[in-house]
Design a protein around this nucleic acid. Structure first.
Length: 599
RNA sequence: GGGGGCGUAGCUCAGUUGGUUAGAGCGCUGCCCUGUCACGGCAGAGGCCGAGGGUUCGAGUCCCUUCGCUCCCGCCA
């Protein structure tokens, strides 16, 4: 007989009745009836009921077992007495009558029980992550994560992609997020940086002639956390391809994501063909570049209806500045004062002066509410018709410069959809967001900046692009990059681009954003040289693995799908990271601490 | 860096207008219990009410400060 087990805890069935078996696992739950004792023995695979009574030679020992002790159990499989089967358990028809026990690992009092579904404070869960990971839900999430990554690998390889590894210790790059730095012992005063993404490496792999790259790549960014953004580190499905257009990337990646989602969504519908939405349209209709398409509400421009109207607040704003617009958020079925007032209060709690609205109800088909009173029934009805609304519906209005109010309009659209129950549940609604602006105006520094990724190819005739000068500011700001995002249920899953593989175009792009050529040479010299010595056109994308798993596990927080996550302050409470190091270590690295003064 | 929420037993929470000895469930300890699977019953231990200061005859409760956790803004090519 094996030293520890002949079967796993989830394996035994009626066909095993009569066998002498050996099991090992954790005491999940103990029910002591005095003369009869049940232990649910748990391992990775399942649960088995172990039973002892005074006829068992180890009954006395069995009575001393406690929750989460790790034990080896010897016993005989027998059929449970009629009426005591547990149909909820795969092993529920049988039980193991115990004849031998060996305690393999005892446990003191637990800071949190493994049994049950009770919620626990995050710091305790993180400090005792190994206990939390024993629990069903987290254990299942992590296993599902592994299966998802497995599926992604298979699907990528089936499409002719090959997996590569890229360096973890690399060089700091000036754009983007804050880097994690690693001091060099051999080169005093110099630092490695952990990669924010293997962006340059994957491009170099294409320049090296490998054609189709992918990697489940760790990425490191020293930025503050969010529920859907791990502090410190996360994983991307990093993809790059040579000789491709945007459409080729879509055709390679979309089936992988759709396939993975269909495989793991548990029957929830997945968008069969991801629609393309231009960045500008997404901002106008949804107030965000990551729209939740489960919410059917689309905003519309209703500026014309308010221009010169009796609603003086809006009318005067429109006359005063040609950039001012009024957008309507249609609210089907929201046509009652209670709802509209609730939205208004919500807007105020969000720091807005209020939220104008019109609602239509029986007897007041011309519109009700203070806005309608001032605008008059003709304009009100015209708006209702434009918005495709009917009696019983409402519309909310936001006014100002769109780039200022979208930060509020987007959430307001979400709020209306959620409050009125218009948002479809249990589905995965994907889209591509395309045509991102290449540059944007930085109001603070009064200069042109890269809008998103400086390595993207501008979607413009190369010769014309190279001839641009400072006087073409308007034209420059209208340039689109060949860049795209995948969004699912309002979560940005990935971002990608056709890269700028021509050194002269890249130099020009950086010059437009105010970066001198010698800086470009200094920071991206390796990349530039690579592009100068025979670089293929190439492009790619990088879906966030953690977010994909989060969506497929139905979790709202990344920490529920990561084995050993850090807390929001980027601390690992289990391992005690970050930690102080010895003076000797610092000396070797030529580092002297200059700590902030404590107040 | 800024804003919101939370902080009472190991855990989840209740705690009246500021008023005697701060409670419940789970967990833990002991005793009882031969068919449970959220087993049941009895008894018990366990509290710097996050910390510090203030108001008051009296503070878990009111005020100020601070710390921790969390969500958001900034930030995230």
């Amino acid at each position: 007989m094996h030293r520890y087990r002949t079967h796993t805890c989830g394996a035994l069935r009626e066909s095993d009745i009569g066998k002498d078996v050996r099991l090992a696992g954790w005491c999940h739950r103990i029910r002591d009836h005095g003369g009869l004792l049940f232990i649910d023995l748990r391992d990775h695979y399942g649960l088995a009921q172990v039973v002892a009574d005074p006829e068992s030679p180890v009954f006395k020992l069995a009575e001393t077992l406690r929750s989460e002790w790790v034990v080896r159990i010897d016993g005989k499989v027998r059929r449970r007495p009629a009426g005591t089967e547990n149909p909820d358990l795969p092993t529920g028809a049988i039980e193991v009558f115990v004849t031998g026990i060996e305690v393999l690992g005892s446990a003191g009092e637990l800071p949190m029980p493994v049994f049950g579904e009770q919620e626990y404070p995050e710091d305790i869960r993180l400090r005792y992550r190994f206990l939390d990971l024993r629990r069903d839900r987290l254990h299942g999430n992590i296993m599902k994560r592994g299966a998802i990554i497995d599926s992604i690998r298979h699907r990528m390889k089936a499409q002719g992609f090959f997996e590569f590894q890229t360096p973890i210790l690399t060089a700091s790059s000036p754009e983007g997020a804050r880097d994690y730095l690693v001091p060099s012992r051999i080169h005093p005063g110099k630092f490695y940086a952990l990669p924010q993404a293997p962006q340059q490496f994957k491009q170099l792999i294409m320049v090296s002639g490998f054609d189709r790259y992918f990697q489940i790549a760790p990425c490191f960014r020293d930025e503050d956390a969010r529920a859907d953004r791990s502090p410190g580190e996360f994983y991307q499905l990093d993809v790059e391809m040579s000789f491709v257009t945007q459409e080729d990337v879509f055709e390679a990646v979309e089936p992988v994501l759709r396939g993975v989602f269909e495989e793991f969504a548990g029957g929830k519908p997945v968008t069969p063909k991801f629609p393309l939405i231009a960045y500008a349209d997404s901002m106008r209709q949804y107030g965000t570049d990551k729209p939740d398409l489960r919410n059917p509400i689309k905003m519309q421009d209703v500026t014309a209806h308010f221009r010169g109207s009796g609603f003086k607040i809006f009318a005067n704003m429109i006359d005063g500045d040609s950039a001012v617009e009024v957008w309507a958020i249609p609210a089907p079925t929201g046509g009652n004062r209670a709802f509209c007032d609730r939205m208004n209060s919500w807007a105020q709690s969000e720091g807005q002066p209020g939220l104008g609205y019109i609602f239509w109800r029986e007897g007041e088909e011309g519109g009700a509410g203070p806005v309608a009173k001032n605008v008059g029934p003709e304009r009100t009805t015209a708006m209702r018709e434009q918005l495709g609304l009917k009696v019983g519906d409402a519309a909310f209005f936001v006014a100002g410069k769109p780039k200022d109010f979208v930060k509020f309009a987007g959430p307001a659209r979400n709020k209306v959809g959620a409050e009125l129950g218009l948002v479809a549940k249990d589905r995965f609604d994907f889209c591509w967001i395309v045509d991102f602006p290449m540059f944007e105006w930085n109001e603070e520094d009064k200069k042109i900046d890269f809008s998103h990724n400086p390595f993207s190819m501008p979607n413009m005739d190369v010769e014309k692009f190279l001839k641009l000068d400072a006087g073409d500011q308007e034209k420059i700001l209208s340039i689109k990059a060949i860049q795209y995002d995948i969004v699912c249920n309002g979560i940005e899953l990935s971002s990608g681009a056709i890269r700028n593989h021509r050194p002269e175009v890249m130099k020009k792009a950086f010059a437009i954003a105010g970066y001198p050529e010698d800086m470009l040479e200094q920071k991206f010299g390796g990349m530039l040289h690579a592009l100068s010595l025979g670089a293929p056109p190439h492009g790619g994308i990088a879906p966030g693995i953690d977010r994909i798993v989060m969506l497929l596990c139905g979790e709202e927080n990344l920490r529920e799908v990561v084995l050993f996550p850090m807390n929001q302050r980027a601390e690992d409470l289990l391992m005690g990271a970050p930690s102080e190091v010895t003076p000797k270590q610092l000396r070797e690295l030529h580092i002297r601490l200059n700590l902030p003064e404590k107040t």
